[in-house]
Each structure stands twice: as structure tokens, then as C-alpha cells.
Nucleic acid binder design. Structure first.
Lengths: 367, 367
DNA sequence: CAAGGTTAGTTAACTCTATTAACAAACTTT
DNA sequence: AAAGTTTGTTAATAGAGTTAACTAACCTTG
């Protein structure tokens, strides 16, 4: 519904169709030109021409002949240029200080790098980041499709970090800085958004989903109608500083009182455990806080797929179960038959792999 | 971000460009072909050709010559065919039982009709509806672009009413029934969704917004990135049966306990008033319930535009102010400078005019 | 094993959409 | 009257897709 823009020329349509081919290969794996024609509805003639262009861009390669006995001319199989393209991802979200990786097009991590933690801020943080990226680039044995960065805070669609308190970046054009230093296209996104992109493409994805992430704060990513919600000022996902009740008065690191983060973040949970609160009881309390914020979202947006993730020793099956129950108590949607809440299978690398998804999206036009 | 589909052919692009012209005329009022060329970025040649097609479809008309002294050939002004096209809308949401209207392309109500209330259900409700529509059609003095219906309950994109308890419709193909009886294209949408479309197009619209509607129940519509959120099973907006706390145990009409609707719907408010609760106190209590559900949504989706509407003697400025304060207490987003919560200026006709927006969208491709 | 059928991919001719370049029409300014 | 502006059209061109017909390379069958 709704949504508009500017004029569409035939050449824009062609660019879309090129991406459609890449998307199809990404989703269904290697296939022939004829297969692509059947899958997309375009003719074999057009597919041949488009594929030629993609091979020319080295986004697609021929991988050999179709095996097996069949009548007719054997087909030439095509695939994304998986062996010949690399993506560099950087996770600034802070579970580990600065982490980078060389990945393939499927977000598989081929090699990892990390900076020594030194709590750098401002220019020092940038310098450390650039050094880390440079290290990764030097270790790379194939052309690099792009660089993806997952940063905490608010990031615009132009790669400007409006607010990342951790590094004291405010209105900093991180994208331009990295592109200038490396000469490689760079795409930046909020860390929770990276995480949900990763789950959407490589994990338990669907057209409508929410990802809830407990770390230093409480992060949240939302996809509706297969589209990442970024919000009117790119601040979507800022769940940590929601307050539920006037009676909630715990002091939050942001200076306000009663924020969700003061009750349900990993530091808050550690604190309660240290104070001797029993784990089962604590889980219920934390789940109630989280569900209070998320349940209305599920009902209002009709979302039936929730990914729950974060520091693994805190975000475990018992807490997930407590959250399921707390959501079911509050939202009709969470009681429906096709509702599911799952733990992320690979919480460690969610942000990094989400960076890869973001690069794929911008460079190849595929989800 | 993300989102994909099937192949785009040049003819699809052309259809988009035709809609782009209609959209521009709708937004900016009458203008010349040359103006359209400047506004869209297409050439004058192309615009002339596209406009010819639109005039042929009688979606656009020439309205005269440009006034005023200017050098150059005077331009011929174009506009949407506002005088020559009608939209029929039907509001089944139930403040008044069955209400229909003949509207122009701007959703201005030219003539109203209503059925006597008889609490009809099932086939009887359909019969009453068809009779009302027939009356409207017979009173219409210009070609009808389409019929729009705003229905309570869950409505799919194919016009099938999955669940509208009020009429005991379950999986009923209302769209097909009306189209078969009238021969006119018919588009059905949930009533709260109609309401937000109306505000989006004719009222206080923006790319990211929420509409909250108190009536028999509590309805909610959401637009993000200029797109109406319909949810994974078209059930988005079902806010009435969210529960906030385990301690909430008021019995709801749906059979469950603790639903928001049992505290903050118009019937619930009437009941509390009848029981002698003071209005100011009641406003605060209702606002707290509503804000508890809506505040997380504002923060998570970064929405800074809230429309508040419903039965006018309940949804008034004092309640709006109480809601503003309750939201500000709970959401950082609601405390931001560019946040605004407004009462709808024309709550009476929101659903009807939203039907017109929905017809415009499907028949002309404009928002 | 030659003939016939099937499937993949290409070549050639055509349609459709939008472009650029040039022009005619109708006005204002000098 | 001559020159300048702006609108809208005509004519020729470029690009993205289509259909129709072809070649290539395989399988099956009499």
C-alpha cells in the first residue's frame, strides 16, 4: 500500500531484473539460464543478455555442466560468484571491542580479526577502526564487494552516525571516512538492524519479524512486509529507554529513570544475580518487562516471528521460555498457532553476518 | 531496505509513470505539461504522450489556459478529472450502523446515505449493504471510479473478510459479492486502516505515523516508510486485546481478561463515568493504559506523528493532553522536539474518506 | 544406427518506452 | 518589426523487452 517515488525508466527496470537474477541464484543456488527464465518469467533471450552483463560485472560465474542423463542439450550452470568475491564486516556493537571478518557472499566467516580493547573514542576510535579494516583488506585474497559496519547508535541511510555515545560520535560521517581511506564502498547500519538482517537472510527469516537483543542495552530490529523499519529519524529500535510504569524508578545509564534497560539489560541482570536473586524468579521478572514492551508491538503489527538473542549465558532457553509465556499472557498474536519465538542459532556472529547482508543489498540489490 | 518481487518490464515502468503524473497532480493541483516534466524529471515529449493516455482513460482533463502575463506560449493546464469521477464509500465500522457516501476524488462528501439499524448479520447484513450501495449508485451523476468499504475485523488484500464478528462473517468474499452485484471494482479494508489512510492523504499525514481510534473497541493503524502495515496475516492493528499486566483482570467482551479494550474503549469509559469516576482521574487512567501499549511502538518504530481519534465526546482535548503526558513519561521518542499528537479534525468521516483513498490507490495508483 | 523428439542457448526482426534534436505556435520585450 | 521565451509537437534514435526461427547437443526408438 502507498509508497511512491520518482520516474522509472526502462534502465531502472533492467537494473531491477539484474538483481532479480542474483536474488534467484542466492535463494535457489546454481541453475541454468533456462531455469532462470522459468523462475523469473523473463524469456531465455533476455536472461542470456542479463546474465552476460552479470558475468561481465563478475557477479555471476559459470560453474560447469548439468550432470545426469536427460534428453536435450545439457545446460550450463550459473551461480553467484561465491568463490571470487569477499565482503568485509566490522562489528562495533561491543560484546567484543572491535571485531572484523572476511566473509564470502553467504556471510560465512573465512577469517576473523580484532583490535585490542582500549576504550578509544572520537578520532582514536576511528584510527583503531581503520587499522583493523586495513588488516582485513591486506589478508583478503579476492576482490572485495564492499565493507559493512554495524555500529551502535543512530545511523542514517547516508552512513552518518548521528549518535553513538560509546565513541562520542555525533553527526560523524563514518561512511565517507572509511571510503576515503580504503577506496571501497562502505555501508553502515545500526547493530540491532544488522542482527535482524542476518536472521532474515541466513536464519529464521520471514516477511514480518522482530529481533530482540540483550547486551549492554536492549536492542530491537523490526521487519514488516519484507522491509527493515528504520523510522522517521533513523532511530527505530531504540527500545532500551522505554518506561512501562510511573512506579518504575530504577536509575538508567542515560540519566533518566525507569528505562527498560535498567531492568532487562545484561548488566542489570548480572547485578540482580550478584545481589542473589534466584534465576527462575529473575527470568520471570525480566521476561515481564520485555514482554510489556514487545507484546503491543506484536499485536499492532501482527508479527508472529520473534528472534531472541544476546549474551549466551544470559539469553538461554529458560529465559526464552519465560518470555514466550509472558508474551502469551499479553498478546493474542503470541497465543496464535503459527507464532514462534526462537533463540538465534549463532548469536556470536549475528552483527558481522548482518553487515554482509547489508553490503549484498546495496551492491547487488539482493536480500 | 530489502523487499523484492518479480520482473519489471518497460510497460510496468510506464504504468508507474502514469501514476506518478496523477500523484503529482493530486499533490500540487492543476499544472501544465511542461510543469509536469519539470516536476517528474521526464521529458516534455514523454509527458505529452503519458498525459494523452491519461486523458484517454478520462483520469485527467484539460482545465483551461494559464492566466497572467508571461513571455512564451501560454500553457494548457491539466488536472485530475475531479468533476468527472466519483467514488462510493461505505463505513461499516458501526458508530452509525451502515453509512455510505458519494465522494469526489478528494474524498469530499457530496451526498450521504444510511441504512436503518437492524443489527443484521450474515446474509441479511450483505443484503442491507448491497441495497445501500445500490441507492448510492442510483444517485450518482458521474462515472464511478470504484467502491471502497471500511469493515471492522480482519480483511485480506483480496477483499476477503476473515473475521468480522459483528456480522458473523468468517472467510467471506465480500469484494466478489459487491463486484458481482454492481459490476464496479470494489476495495475493502479494515476500518482503522481506512482511518489512517484518510489522515495520511487528507489530514496530518507523514511517512511514519500511528492512528489510535477509540470506539466500540480500540483500533490502531500504522504507516512506516509511507507504507501501510498490514501484518503477516492481515491482522495488524488489533490493539484492543493487548494485556499489560498480570494484575489486569477486567472481563473483556472477547472472553479473555485484562484486555486494553476492557479499560480504554468507549463503552468501558462510559461505564466508569456512570459509576461516578471523576473525568480528570479517568482520563489519566485511560491515558496510562493506552500509552503503555503505544509508547513502545513509538520508540521501536521511531514514530513521531500520532493521530488520536474516536467518539468526539470521549476523545477530546483533555484526554489527548493526558495521553501526551502519559506517552512522554514512557517514551523518549514522545519527548523529542518534533513529536506531535493531534486530534483528528474530522473524526466523523475518517473511515469514509479513507475508503476513497483506498480506491484512489488501487484504481489510480496514487496515495 | 539413422530418424525423430527434447532441451538449451543464440540470432534476427519487431514492439514499446523514453530520449535528443529540431520545429511550430503563441506570447512578451525591445 | 525583430528578438527572445516558453509550450507543445514531430521525427529520428537508443535501449529493453518480446516472438519466431535457428543451431547445438543430448536422449529414445524403430
Amino acid at each position: 500500500m502507498l509508497s511512491h517515488g520518482s520516474a522509472i525508466l526502462p534502465s531502472h527496470g533492467r537494473e531491477h531484473n539484474l538483481s532479480l537474477i542474483l536474488q534467484t541464484l542466492s535463494d535457489q543456488g546454481e541453475m541454468s539460464r533456462a531455469d532462470l527464465a522459468r523462475a523469473t518469467g523473463l524469456t531465455r533471450v533476455t536472461i542470456s543478455e542479463l546474465v552476460a552483463e552479470l558475468i561481465n560485472r563478475s557477479h555471476v560465474i559459470e560453474t560447469g555442466q548439468q550432470e545426469g542423463k536427460r534428453p536435450g542439450k545439457p545446460s550450463t550452470l550459473l551461480d553467484l560468484n561465491r568463490p571470487g568475491l569477499r565482503i568485509i564486516g566490522v562489528d562495533l556493537s561491543g560484546v567484543v571491542p572491535f571485531r572484523a571478518a572476511i566473509m564470502d557472499l553467504d556471510g560465512a566467516i573465512l577469517q576473523s580479526f580484532s583490535s585490542p580493547k582500549r576504550d578509544a573514542t572520537r578520532e582514536a576510535a576511528v584510527a583503531q577502526l581503520l587499522e583493523l579494516i586495513d588488516t582485513a583488506i591486506r589478508h583478503c585474497d579476492a576482490p572485495i564487494l564492499g565493507i559493512g559496519i554495524g555500529s551502535p547508535g543512530v545511523v542514517t541511510d547516508k552512513g552518518i552516525v548521528i549518535a553513538a555515545e560509546k565513541f562520542v560520535w555525533r553527526g560523524f560521517d563514518l561512511g565517507a571516512a572509511v571510503e576515503q581511506a580504503t577506496g571501497i564502498n562502505t555501508h553502515i547500519l545500526n547493530d540491532a538492524d544488522c542482527a535482524i538482517l542476518s536472521e532474515h537472510t541466513f536464519g529464521q527469516g520471514s516477511d514480518h519479524m522482530v529481533l530482540l537483543r540483550l547486551g549492554r542495552g536492549v536492542g530491537c530490529g523490526v521487519i514488516t512486509h519484507n522491509t527493515l523499519v528504520r523510522g522517521s529519524d533513523f532511530a527505530a529500535g531504540e527500545l532500551g529507554h522505554v518506561r512501562q510504569r510511573a512506579e518504575d524508578t530504577a536509575l538508567c545509564s542515560c540519566g533518566e529513570i525507569g528505562c527498560l534497560e535498567a531492568y532487562a539489560s545484561v548488566p542489570a541482570i548480572w547485578k540482580s544475580l550478584a545481589e542473589g536473586e534466584e534465576k527462575g524468579q529473575l527470568n520471570q521478572r525480566v521476561a515481564a518487562y520485555l514482554a510489556g514492551a514487545v507484546a503491543p508491538l506484536l499485536s499492532i503489527l501482527d508479527i508472529r516471528n520473534v528472534i531472541f538473542t544476546g549474551t549466551p549465558d544470559i539469553v538461554d532457553q529458560p529465559l526464552a521460555q519465560a518470555l514466550r509465556e509472558a508474551l502469551a499472557l499479553r498478546s493474542h498474536t503470541a497465543r496464535s498457532e503459527n507464532f514462534r519465538l526462537s533463540l538465534s542459532e549463532d548469536p556470536e556472529h549475528l552483527v558481522l553476518r548482518g553487515c554482509a547482508v547489508n553490503v549484498r543489498f546495496h551492491e547487488l540489490g539482493i536480500a
